[in-house]
Amino acid sequence: MVNRLRIALVLLTLVLVTALLLPAQLIFLWRDWPARRRLPRLWHRIACRLLGLKVHVHGMVETERPLMLVSNHVSWKDILVLGAIADVVFVAKAEVRDWPVFGVLARLQSTIFVAREEKRRAGEQANEIGRRMAAGEIVVLFPEGTTSDGNRLLEIKSALFGAATSALPASPTGIVHIQPVSIAYTRVHGMPMGRYHRPIAAWPGDVELVPHLLGVLREGAIDVEVDLAPALPYDAKSNRKATSRMVEGAIRAMLTARLRGR
């Protein structure tokens, strides 16, 4: 009974906070004011606090622009975590636009939607990401293309780095900065989570969203470790596949170290 009451209060508070911030964000989006990037960060911080996500950041977000953050992908909670530490914009699959609740929130954050199965639009979609980066927005890319079980890094798709190439012409230095990021869910109620309990935090694609969300709310105390490696310079001479391998190596090393408790 107490647990159900707490879950209800958390959801009600989150709805009220969203309702309070919504009018301002709609105005910011309409006027295209810089605050449209900052207000979602406040919402993400509040959401993390309400859901019991304790975010520990190691390293700093690169200050140079254009900037792309490239991260492993464990759960929908990754959006809240990264959105709480920087003013970012996400790249999401096109079907997310039509999801109840999450689709609306994604649109309010000016998420870039891509239809990965439409190969003919790949160049157009990469150009859109490139334009947003060139305009100074920090774009977050999840190059695995799906969520993992939280215990490993899936194969990185190097084709997604075409967006970095698209941003090069608008970069004043001719360089796009690509920063590897690792997200590791390590503890629940202060106790090491371990491989067996990682599903508490991880959200693989075959798990239904609502039961998983309720499970997270029931726990209410999950530690998240976010590691940021030094950014890699990417220019016209850079090799996409070589850069992809370097990014993959950096993310894998950071993720493995965190999951092993280092």
Rank of each mutant, 00 (worst) to 15 (best):
V10L: 08
I27L: 11
A242C: 13
R240Y: 12
G83S: 02
V74M: 07
V104M: 11
H197K: 08
K241Q: 12
M254Y: 07
E219G: 08
L153G: 02
A184P: 02
D227M: 09
L141R: 02
E208W: 09
P211I: 05
A47N: 02
D78W: 00
G194A: 11
T147V: 11
I183F: 03
V55A: 01
S148P: 10
I183C: 01
D78H: 03
R41D: 14
P143W: 06
D227I: 12
T18M: 02
K77I: 13
E117Q: 11
G145D: 01
G136N: 07
G220H: 06
S166Q: 15
S75T: 13
A135R: 10
E225P: 10
T243A: 14
T111F: 00
R36E: 06
K119C: 14
I175T: 04
R6A: 02
L228R: 02
S182L: 05
G215A: 08
L67G: 00
P169F: 00
N3T: 14
L20N: 04
V81T: 06
I112H: 00
W99A: 04
R187S: 15
N127V: 08
W30H: 05
V2H: 12
A122C: 14
V10R: 05
I7C: 06
Q109A: 03
R198L: 13
E248V: 10
P172Y: 07
T256K: 15
E62N: 12
A86T: 02
L11T: 03
L154D: 12
L20S: 10
M68W: 03
R36C: 04
I27T: 15
D149W: 06
P204I: 09
I156C: 15
N72I: 04
R6V: 03
R258K: 11
A115I: 04
N151E: 15
L209S: 08
N151Y: 15
A236T: 15
A159Y: 07
W76L: 00
S158Q: 14
D235I: 15
Q25H: 10
N3Q: 07
P23Y: 00
R4K: 11
R45E: 04
V176F: 11
H212P: 00
W203D: 00
L5A: 13
R152N: 13
A19F: 03
V10Q: 04
R37E: 01
D78S: 07
R97G: 00
R31G: 01
R252E: 08
A84W: 05
V81M: 03
R152I: 13
Q125G: 03
V2S: 07
S71K: 02
E124M: 15
A221E: 10
R120G: 15
E62I: 01
L12P: 07
I200W: 08
E118H: 12
E128L: 12
A202I: 08
Q109M: 14
M133W: 04
A106T: 13
G205F: 07
L29E: 05
K93G: 00
D206A: 08
A242M: 13
G52C: 04
A236L: 14
P169C: 09
I85L: 12
L232N: 06
V70C: 11
F102Y: 13
F102C: 09
A221Y: 13
H212S: 11
H177W: 03
N239C: 14
A236R: 15
